[in-house]
Design a protein around this nucleic acid. Structure first.
Length: 614
DNA sequence: AGCCTCACTACCCCGTGCTT
DNA sequence: AAGCACGGGGTAGTGAGGCT
């Protein structure tokens, strides 16, 4: 256990680094860190870096520089340092809040490991409800969503309880308002039981001064709060009291509500994670109104109307009941169709365009017989990449242009059909190769289809005690109101990034790299050099595999008879063929990849001179 | 000792979809 | 409307290890 006394003792000691290293074992004993605490210490140190915490010997980098003076090494990545060095740095913390932070993190880590042990030795009984909990927790995004910073002050853990306790379902929803400092605070909390009986329906007084009641969304105004006395801490206790042993919390994107409540409870059924379809993009999660409309077959929320917190807690419970009563294979997740602006159907979106590319060149990739207007390129990413729109006379012509476009067909992250186009073009005094994306403006979910209300929906509607909501079943299929996410307080959002560990209920959170401390993981990124080399590989690889069905019949091929590529828009095919032959030669003769790159540059320069561009 | 290569990390941007 | 997460894509910096 880290103690203030230990830290003060260490900070008082006037030791050199040599002495520090020599006394390391004793300090580890004093602080209670073990050899197995490496991962925890790495995250604490990374968190300290992020928070710019300085110890007696400065910040982490300064500390490392001193420790490694003799060796000459300067690695600042905490993961590359042993436990003793990390623990020694932590021991140099002198500020009370920093010491307290470490203390809380250590307690939290202990709690996590205890919970994991309990889950392994005494797992929850396999009930149908528990299976839905397991399904929720098996979602790849569960780990990141439900990895709460519950080591922070104000957070509470629910009690795990006896794994054989009778299951109790409680559905929860919260509404938040914006307070000073853009902090989101609770303003209304609703919870219903398994039979839709209201357990909690309370308005809450925010701690801070409200800057925006978001009345159009929450339905709550200043007037509603005039006589309310329930505090944030009070409502937290109210909800905690509901979480008796055996309670499974139900909700849609429940992690937002739990963050706002500052309650760490992982035995949940989250309908945004429970309902999945292999055809959806990985990042897609269905909205509550989408699920309601697709599965329960009715529309529970009118567009442009405020949310009803109680309704928002009832619908997830209905969805769970539906899931308990229907086998997964019988689920038909036909999503409400998106209304598509007819004007957008006649456009193609061109993005990731290099800065040196011209509109004339872009025009050349589309058939000349199709009327097409390329809008000015908007450059982003500090002017490095750009995007624009090609506007055709009709949706049919845009479709035709996309079909005829030579490129590797795929989908973007949102599921839009997209072709990767490779294009060699003259730029200044040399030839350049660009690879960019051309995307259709609509995706497969955009097809308009009439919605039918079936027998099931009538049953689902009948099993509620709130018929007024169920009356709201319109005939049109308008896209649900587009909204954006808030995620607890700004402080939560910031601090939640500081440390991530294995979660409390033993769910294996995907291994995070250091960027998880500050943001998302970028570990899969290729080096720039690798990208360049890949481009070369693409040029040279005669046997490149192209997925079946990617290329439409009659589509032209590139100079190497390789389908699916738009190489050299204009009349450079012969030159390219020659270049390719030379490249093959260069590749064979090159001693290294660097040689290959240099040789390629020479070739391109030579080609440019032949073109009269030099 | 100094240079080079390359793996890794940090940080930035974009588009999309979700929440309040 | 505001803000967040995600996947995907990019650039720049860092430092270990190998080579000269």
């Amino acid at each position: 256990m880290v103690s203030c006394a230990a830290f003060q003792a260490v900070s008082r000691a006037e030791f050199g680094i040599g002495f520090a290293m020599a006394a390391m074992k004793r300090q580890i004993y004093l602080t209670g860190f073990k050899e197995t605490d490496h991962e925890l210490l790495v995250k604490i140190v990374k968190g300290a870096q992020w928070r710019q915490i300085k110890g007696k010997q400065g910040d982490w980098k300064e500390f490392v520089a001193m420790v490694n003076k003799k060796r000459g090494g300067t690695h600042s990545d905490p993961a590359r340092h042993p436990v003793d060095v990390l623990a020694a740095f932590v021991q140099t913390f002198t500020k009370k809040e920093d010491v307290e932070l470490v203390k809380r993190l250590r307690n939290w880590a202990t709690y996590c490991s205890n919970q994991k042990l309990l889950n392994e030795t005494h797992p929850f009984a396999k009930t149908p409800e528990q299976e839905l909990v397991d399904a929720t927790q098996s979602h790849p995004r569960f780990g990141s969503f439900y990895n709460f910073p519950s080591w922070m002050e104000g957070w509470k853990h629910s009690k795990r309880g006896d794994p054989d306790s009778p299951v109790k379902l409680v559905s929860l929803d919260c509404e938040m308002v914006t307070c000073e400092g853009d902090v989101k605070e609770l303003v209304r909390v609703c919870a219903v039981g398994s039979d839709y009986n209201t357990l909690v329906d309370e308005l809450v007084v925010p701690n801070g001064k409200v800057t925006d009641y978001l009345t159009s969304i929450t339905g709550v105004s200043e007037k509603d709060l005039q006589r309310v006395t329930l505090s944030q801490a009070g409502v937290q206790k109210l909800v905690l009291d509901l979480l008796t042993p055996g309670t499974i919390l139900v909700g849609h994107s429940l992690h937002y509500d739990l963050r706002a409540l500052q309650i760490d409870h992982k035995r949940v059924i989250d309908t945004s994670l429970l309902f999945r379809d292999p055809s959806w993009p990985p990042s897609y999660s269905p909205s509550l109104s989408n699920l309601c409309q697709s599965i329960l077959k009715y529309k529970f929320r009118e567009d442009d109307k405020p949310h009803d917190c109680l309704d928002d807690s009832i619908v997830p419970m209905r969805l769970v009941h539906y899931r308990l009563e229907h086998a997964v294979s019988t689920l038909s997740l036909e999503f409400p169709r998106k209304e598509v602006n007819q004007g957008d159907l006649s456009k193609l979106f061109l993005h990731k365009l290099p800065s040196s590319i011209s509109l004339t060149l872009l025009r050349s990739i589309f058939p000349k017989d199709l009327a097409c207007r390329i809008q000015d390129i908007m450059f982003k990413n500090r002017g490095k990449t750009g995007s624009t729109v090609a506007v055709f006379d009709s949706a049919e012509e845009a479709d035709s242009a996309f079909e005829q476009l030579e490129g590797v067909l795929g989908k973007d992250s949102a599921g839009y059909p997209q072709k990767t186009v490779s294009l060699m073009y003259p730029s200044g005094n040399q030839m350049r190769m660009a690879e960019f994306q051309v995307r259709k403006m609509v995706n497969s979910r955009s097809v308009i289809a009439p919605r039918q209300e079936n027998e099931e929906s009538q049953v689902m509607k009948a099993c509620t005690k709130r018929p007024t909501v169920d009356d709201v079943v319109g005939e049109n299929n308008d896209e649900p109101k587009r909204r954006k996410i808030s995620s607890g307080t700004a402080a939560d959002a910031r601090c939640s990034k500081v440390v991530e560990l294995e979660d409390h209920d033993g769910i294996n959170v995907p291994q995070t790299d250091s960027t998880s401390i500050l943001g998302r993981s970028d570990s899969s990124k290729k080096t720039p050099w690798a990208n360049k080399y890949q481009l070369l590989e693409q040029l040279n690889d005669e046997d490149e595999e192209v997925e079946e069905g990617e290329i439409s019949e009659g589509e032209t091929k590139d100079a190497a008879e390789r389908p699916g590529h738009k190489v050299c828009s204009c009349s450079h095919l012969q030159e390219l063929e020659a270049l390719k032959s030379e490249l093959v030669k260069v590749r064979k003769e090159s001693k290294s990849k660097a040689d290959e790159i240099k040789s390629l540059q020479k070739l391109v320069a030579a080609l440019s001179r032949r073109e009269g561009l030099a």
